[in-house]
């Protein structure tokens, strides 16, 4: 096996092959190091590992910018298809069932949901345009089961498109997941080039819109779907975390008691499993985390006499890509690999 011959051949079809490794200089350093340190028989295996890293197909390699955008696009498809299924696609005439469902929301709430629906549709289009053609094949609508039934359409969220409370619960769960996902993907979009910086900025600009959605959906949930002035409704008073499941603040307080439907949604507010490629010092604690940059703020700022909840609420937390994929696959049918 002539590794250099393979690299040379590969370069003919993929001129950027060396850049897919750390750099031209470092790939040769790695290979020469392998030659010295490993038995010849082990070289192909080690070489395979380098290739997997270069082409980003294994869970042990850090995602490329394209990987992160493709991952984001999949989540946007999930969200967009969800709102379209319940409310009708933007610009389309709602079906009789969708019309009946839409009428269960107050005017301001329905208007808000239509804005969110349009945003998610726009996010899909923006990410499709930003990626090479067919990076993520357009999913069929029937790969999703928004009841969480894996294809039975009778899962824990059965009635999601006829019961507004269940719809809002799933919507909040999807948006809160998206907020954590973009945060977790951001480090892999860091760049020193103008074009690369623009991609990061666009991702950040989607991230904050997802957070605005999550906030609005939480406001609607605590007031009820038919309330027309939802923001005037206060969350259940006090510092009892379990109240936040049904009466959320517009931000995440501790772990919100496990979220809208704790048996299914606790993972959305829990800790993530840190992949081995994670950059230094970045961790994925649960949303009740009060330690930032190595400092326990609740202890360090105890003299402020603020409620304990405030220290967790002041910061959202990231989730790593694999954890988000696992959460998102709650809504795909059995056997589908859209989320891996």
């Amino acid at each position: 096996m002539n590794i250099f011959q393979i690299l040379s051949e590969l370069e003919k079809v993929d001129p950027e092959v060396y850049e897919r490794f750390d750099s031209r200089r470092r790939v040769f350093k790695h290979i020469s190091g392998l030659g010295k340190n490993l038995a010849a028989a082990a070289v192909p295996l080690a070489f395979t590992a380098i290739f997997n890293k270069a082409y980003g197909q294994t869970s042990t390699s850090a995602p490329s910018a394209t990987d992160v955008l493709a991952f984001a696009l999949k989540l946007e498809y999930l969200e967009s298809y969800f709102y379209n299924a319940g409310l009708g696609a933007p610009g389309a005439t709602a079906t009789a069932a969708q019309t009946t469902f839409r009428n269960l929301f107050s005017a301001t709430n329905l208007s808000s949901l239509d804005k969110i629906r349009l945003d998610e549709s726009n996010h899909v289009k923006a990410l499709v345009a930003a990626l090479p053609a067919n990076t993520v094949p357009v999913p069929a609508t029937n790969i999703f089961d928004f009841t969480g039934g894996k294809g039975s359409n009778a899962g824990p969220f059965a009635g999601v498109f006829v019961n507004p409370a269940i719809f809002l619960a799933v919507a909040q769960s999807l948006e809160d997941t998206g907020v954590r996902a973009y945060k977790g993907g951001a480090p892999y979009l860091m760049s020193t080039t103008t074009a690369g910086r623009s991609i990061l900025e666009t991702a950040l600009n989607i991230h904050s819109v997802e957070a605005r959605h999550a906030s609005r959906l939480r406001t609607m949930r605590r007031a009820g779907a038919s309330n027309n002035t939802a923001s005037a409704v206060a969350p259940t008073a006090g510092n009892n975390e379990s109240d936040r499941s049904a009466s959320p603040k517009s931000w995440v307080s501790f772990k919100d008691g496990g979220g809208a439907s704790p048996a299914q949604t606790a993972g959305i507010y829990g800790a993530g499993t840190s992949p081995s490629y994670t950059p230094a010092s970045i961790t994925f604690p649960a949303e009740d985390n009060v330690t930032q940059g190595g400092v326990n703020l609740q202890s360090a700022l105890a003299s402020l006499n603020f409620p304990a909840s405030a220290f967790s609420e002041a910061f959202d937390e990231p989730l790593p890509v694999p954890t988000v994929l696992s959460i998102a696959s709650t809504f795909t049918v059995t056997g589908n690999t859209f989320f891996g």
Partner: peptide, 23 residues
């Protein structure tokens, strides 16, 4: 990277604030 993630942890909370105040 750590600073970018910390900025991300804060900006989404600011966005949640902004949405509610606007409402």
């Amino acid at each position: 990277p750590l600073y970018l993630v910390i900025a991300g942890k804060i900006v989404s909370v600011e966005a949640r604030h902004a949405a509610l105040i606007r409402d």
